[in-house]
Design a protein around this nucleic acid. Structure first.
Lengths: 134, 134, 134, 134
DNA sequence: GTGGTCTAGACCACC
DNA sequence: GTGGTCTAGACCACG
């Protein structure tokens, strides 16, 4: 699993790690049961402090993306997201609203926006399919 | 000009303001010479501290997006030219991809996702319409 | 709000703080909208590091017990627990099972156990009522 | 003797074992001279590392609850006498209060709580029965 | 070896 | 003033 950090971003490093793990899971690149890199080596590789990675992993556990077993390591959770549909839709809605705001400010019209939603969704699904063929 | 703030985002409020002004300029929705809302009323409307808006405007001036003339107000600079449609789409695409990742991670299917794109876009358009009637 | 820490307990200090805030909310001693002690003074008062309190507050926010607004402070959430009933019952079940295990090992029989559940629940409700009369 | 472990508790696994043995002794369910399960099979049954069980037994020996005779096994010491009923109820009450706090915090009402106490108690009794049939 | 907790102290962003 | 992030390094518990 490869991580790319941008230390100049306003997004905290630990959240960048969180998002990249979630993206890996979402895309199928990381599968349930897979072990994540252990904290210390990963911290060294990314040139950040151990606590920063630990914080990212804690956050991921809160979000039920991974499970950690002390002394054993951290693993991708196998359970489907335990959140109810309503709660899950709420989370996606928050992201979607960011895109909507951006679209309106940039004068992207309704048709273009829907077209974009469609193509990006499918492009991602395609990448996911490819990953699972490996 | 309408602003949409998300207080729980990791992106600081003042940067959300900066980005939304820049997006308006990039799209041509805000034109050189247009005046921005003055600090105090805007801060009140958005329920944030005046310093937060002041900081956003300072940042925008540093980036040469606006010019402030003390005692007169803040204006869009002449320098910038609206981005081509392609460049604007690229910016929205980045936001859309975040929503796509979230959707896949939360097992939202294609139809639900497109439905969401549609409803949130229209909901926002509706809110703008209502606001402009006031 | 008073905190009592036991540094010899195997329960981490930050979790003791979490539990005591939750108990205060549950009992009605802390009400929605109330502000929690700020991190630095509380850390000083309890003779622990600022990070320890910060960790406790982060955990409480994850559990939707409090909301924190950077630069303003931490507040008891006003929303009802957003968890669905099923999820909430699950959490109580985990605690109940601890009591059940203890009861079986200690040879407490069914009637005694149910009697205990009843009296402790009512005793707590009573304390809560008293608190809200203040 | 049956053990019930909760891997997500903040209480370490080895202490859960310690407490459950002590509870059995306190109630008289385990009597002086009784042999405890040997380490390897128990570790296997509970899916934990042998060291974890060994640590629990070491701790129990330090507390003079058991005596280990190398090559023969571990036995309940003669020293302890079962606690009076009142003392045992006190121990269960502590656990019950945790469940009560959780229930109030999660807005579980009186009837639901008592129902839960009943079903979990019986579910546990049932599991014990089934296990002893094996 | 693994992850978890805690400290001490720095710097930043927001109000 | 507030909370948020990050570092450096300590000690513990678990496997």
């Amino acid at each position: 699993m490869r991580f790319e950090l941008n230390f100049k971003s306003s997004k905290p490093v630990y959240l960048q790690v969180v998002d990249q793990v979630k993206a890996a899971v979402a895309s199928g690149a990381a599968r349930p049961g897979d072990t994540l890199p252990s904290i210390r080596p990963l911290a060294e590789e990314l040139r950040v402090n151990r606590n920063t990675i630990a914080k990212a992993y804690t956050e991921l556990e809160h979000q039920c993306v991974i499970t950690t077993r002390t002394g054993r390591g951290c693993f991708i959770s196998d359970a489907d997201s335990p959140l109810h549909k309503e709660a899950r839709l709420q989370l996606v809605t928050e992201e979607m609203d960011q895109a909507v705001i951006q679209a309106h400010h940039l004068q992207i019209d309704r048709d273009e926006f829907l077209q974009l939603a469609l193509t990006r969704f499918d492009a991602f699904a395609q990448r996911r399919l490819t990953a699972s063929d490996e």
